[in-house]
Design a protein around this nucleic acid. Structure first.
Lengths: 345, 345
DNA sequence: CTGTTAGCGCATTCAT
DNA sequence: ATGAATGCGCTAACAG
């Protein structure tokens, strides 16, 4: 290649790297040779001496609408900052999360963005901390997106999250204000810290309205529709709940399907509130009242935190975005009150 | 690192690469040093001499449920074959498709899998062919997934697709059999070859039932919900269509929303059939009758084609999967027939 | 503006 | 079983 153009490899390198006021004369010859030989630089070899320009994003489940909406925000910002964005899936396996992080460290990624919750044992957390320090030493950033950091405060990790606790509080309050007192919660896996936040907001709202939290009204599921369907069936047959606050829109979709299959109409016989506000929420029937989480912005912020870093920045930064409930059609006053003609408060 | 363990770099290389009957004595020392220094191999440097083990997947839109379901199939098979799978988004820009392919070639990916349709101009096709040949020369494969290959037959590209034409035929026939004669089609972008296949199946079904295709009944949109909503509004206000066959479930979701907003009830006043059978189809109201496309299997097959390659295989292979209509609740006989008590044939 | 030289971190001969 | 030497393709520093 160098010879084909009649120049040295250094010249070729400089020209193809950009950053070179090329004399049209040789520039032409080089580009011609590139054409003829269909030459492409070896990015791996290049990364041996320079930044890779890669941003990696890690998700549990590549089919989850929530994760992928966040992902599109990450992608958008990464591209805007001149990086390429790669997404990998852990398929929900904690060990794979660590190995993917490691893999990206090996590849010289400039940032690794972990999107969404994960079962977090103490051991896992310790390994995550180690991974963060390893990335840091390599000049790369680890950022947690839509997931709180439960490890040490001095670990070199940035985090951008949404205030899920108050989102859950608002959602539950919305239900209570409509007159419901038997409000169930379709929770996420208890090992997920994000699930814990929602549970706390739910319980705080109950207490604020003078309702005693009843453990029987809390059912656990993973965030999938399937699992939401099953948990909702249990809730509907075993308890007298008149409303369900679901930890995700996907599980809310399952809950609505369960209600339908059990002959309960939503919202007349059962009110449902979701969480996330994924596009699906608009298409459910009835249209789902839910807590809006700024998914794209979550992704964009995470990428900015990772890439726009100045020397004086602290080792760990944190940004918290807000959430708010979007009122649609899946909430109504409970049946008996409704029958007696009482409106919601 | 080499010194820290008291051995040569060669020994470290051999031990960390696996494939080495390690004498427990030194093996121990090396692993200890790895621990102490938190050492990780440089995958880029390694790729300088060996296969990268990467499979890249390229999609237009990372938020599309259809693409991501295919993606999970790709991921699953790639992991099963011991590769790591990276997905990149082109954000719908044809040039980015080419640049991403190029990027993965530069990175030494073993396979690049293009998922889903793309506007295909002649020029783009020529560049794709060139890219395929480039990858081939580098020992990598290009495979098209859920997207036909319109280029030359001797190009080194594998393709796995679904028989969309007959899927569209079946869907349209289903509507015609229910008694509809004014069947509209919410088509995809005409530059997409996949859209063309669906249009052909639609028209073939009409002719087979003795109905003359009416261009006024074909509206174009991209495959999004938004665009489907708008196109459906036009169809519903400007024509007398009693049924719509949509090119995707997402656009069907838009069509159902449009019908609702225009005061037309589905399926009583309007029948709707979708395409893809993404999970959303189950949650629409009414539950969407659609054409099932085996998304995960599409992805798995594509990866197998790329990775399980034997020397005697032809330069270009092709597998076609079947599709079938899934009957749910969004189709009914047209209103007038229904009113007269006639059942569907 | 461009060629020369050196070295990035690893796998791989060839010796030992 | 392991060390020494060579080269992978590229960029960076240093001439010229």
């Amino acid at each position: 290649m160098a010879s084909r153009a009649g120049v040295s490899v250094a010249t070729v390198s400089r020209i193809l790297s950009g950053a070179y006021t090329a004399p049209p004369a040789t520039h032409e010859r080089v580009m011609q040779a590139v054409q003829d030989l269909d030459y492409v630089v070896n990015a791996n070899a290049r990364s041996l001496n320079t930044a890779s320009g890669m941003v990696a994003m890690v998700v549990n489940d590549i089919t989850s609408p929530f994760f992928m909406n966040v992902a599109s925000g990450v992608e958008e910002q990464a591209v805007a900052d001149g990086r390429v964005c790669l997404v990998c899936s852990t398929q929900g396996v904690p060990e794979r999360e660590l190995s993917v992080i490691d893999l990206m460290r090996q590849r010289g990624a400039e940032a690794v963005i972990l999107v969404g919750g994960m079962a977090e044992t103490e051991e896992h957390l310790a390994q995550l901390t180690a991974a963060a320090e390893g990335l840091d030493r390599a000049g790369a950033r680890l950022v947690l997106c839509a997931r709180p950091w439960k490890g040490g405060a001095k670990a070199p990790v940035d985090v951008v999250e949404c205030d899920m606790e108050s989102g859950a509080f608002a959602a539950t309050s919305h239900l209570l204000s409509a007159g419901h007192t038997r409000v169930a919660h379709l929770a996420g896996p208890h090992e997920f810290s994000v699930a814990g936040q929602r549970l706390e907001g739910y319980e705080r709202a109950l207490r604020a309205h003078g309702v005693k939290p009843d453990p029987a009204l809390v059912a656990e599921s993973d965030m999938t529709r399937e699992s939401g369907y099953e948990a909702a069936c249990r809730l509907l047959t075993d308890t007298d709940a008149t409303a369900i606050f679901c930890a995700s829109d996907m599980s809310a979709a399952g809950a609505i399907a369960a209600a339908r299959d059990l002959g309960r109409s939503v919202p007349d016989d059962l009110s449902v509130v979701g969480f996330d506000d994924i596009p699906l929420a608009e298409d459910l029937y009835p249209r789902l009242t839910t807590v809006h989480v700024p998914q794209q912005e979550l992704g964009r912020s995470a990428t900015r935190l990772a890439l726009h870093r100045r020397p004086m920045d602290p080792p760990s930064r944190r940004v918290v975005l807000g959430s708010h409930v979007v009122v649609r059609q899946s909430v109504a006053p409970p049946a008996r009150l409704n029958a007696h003609g009482k409106a919601d408060s």
